[in-house]
């Protein structure tokens, strides 16, 4: 497999962590109480830690003196390969936790498969990530239950988020061309095979949370091809601000 393919494959995984980590970092200092503020920041920190491992590896593969920061900050919007789910804004705590939960369940399944990769670096990153993401999934599942089976208001709010964000879940299982090449060469994960386990796990938690599983069959997609929502440009404007304003400097 060519290095360029591996790099593209890494974007497909790491960009999700990058954009979700960035969204979570917006909340630091504004949580509903100190304990959840600290916990959400922890998740963001874990994700940025993973991103650095992925991008340091990708930068090395690219071989042209690129750094992790070039990859994280200096691509155009079209070149970010994250799914639409993770770029959705922090409308309220119910959205934040639902987005997190929907991603965590996928993320854990993905890493459990990725640890079997024939690429040793990816295997190592996955193994380390599994520990962190297991905790993330526990945290977000617990909150879905609390909000779903808490008060009438919280039930209503989290159901609203579940209904709204559901349409972004299907994209997680779309195979891109880069995915196919990576699977064929043994380094990548066939995400289409994770779908059944994903919806089973998600369904169990929603049920325990007394929430209704949406019946919609209409799903949104595009992020994996670099076609994002209107929210993405603003997120990138923040993320890239310093690197764009002060190019070629060290910080």
């Amino acid at each position: 497999m060519k290095n360029e393919n591996i790099i593209q494959y890494i974007y497909g995984i790491a960009d999700n962590a990058l954009i979700l980590g960035q969204r979570l970092s917006e909340l630091c200092g504004h949580g509903p109480n100190l304990e959840t503020d600290i916990a959400l920041t922890n998740i963001s920190l874990d994700l940025f830690g993973q991103i650095r491992s992925y991008f340091q590896y990708a930068a090395k593969l690219s071989g042209d003196k690129k750094t992790e920061d070039d990859l994280a900050f200096l691509r155009i919007e079209r070149e970010y390969k994250n799914v639409l789910l993770v770029e959705q804004p922090n409308r309220h705590f119910g959205y934040v936790l639902t987005r997190q939960f929907f991603y965590d369940v996928f993320h854990l399944l993905l890493l459990q498969e990725l640890q079997k990769s024939t690429d040793e670096t990816l295997t190592a990153i996955a193994k380390k990530g599994i520990k962190e993401v297991s905790y993330h999934q526990r945290f977000s599942s617990d909150w879905i239950k609390r909000l779903g089976d808490g008060t009438e208001e919280s039930h209503h709010k989290v159901q609203e988020a579940v209904d709204d964000l559901w349409k972004f879940t299907d994209e997680l299982f779309h195979m891109t061309e880069d995915d196919r090449v990576a699977v064929e060469s043994g380094i990548g994960v066939d995400v289409s095979k994770l779908k059944e386990r994903y919806y089973k796990r998600v369904g169990e938690v929603l049920e325990e949370a007394t929430l209704t599983i949406p019946e919609t069959k209409w799903f949104q997609k595009g992020g994996k091809q670099g076609i994002h929502s209107e929210h993405m440009g603003y997120l990138l404007a923040d993320l890239q601000y310093m690197q764009r304003t002060y190019p070629n400097m060290e910080w």
Binding site: I38, T41, Q243, W251
Partner: peptide
């Protein structure tokens, strides 16, 4: 935090602000 100039700085700043939350606690 959202505009930190590098990944390393972003992680360090996030961790710092989180420490302050811990101090508050």
């Amino acid at each position: 935090i959202t505009r930190a100039p590098s990944l390393r700085r972003k992680v360090a700043l996030l961790a710092k602000v989180q420490d302050e939350a811990g101090h508050g606690l």
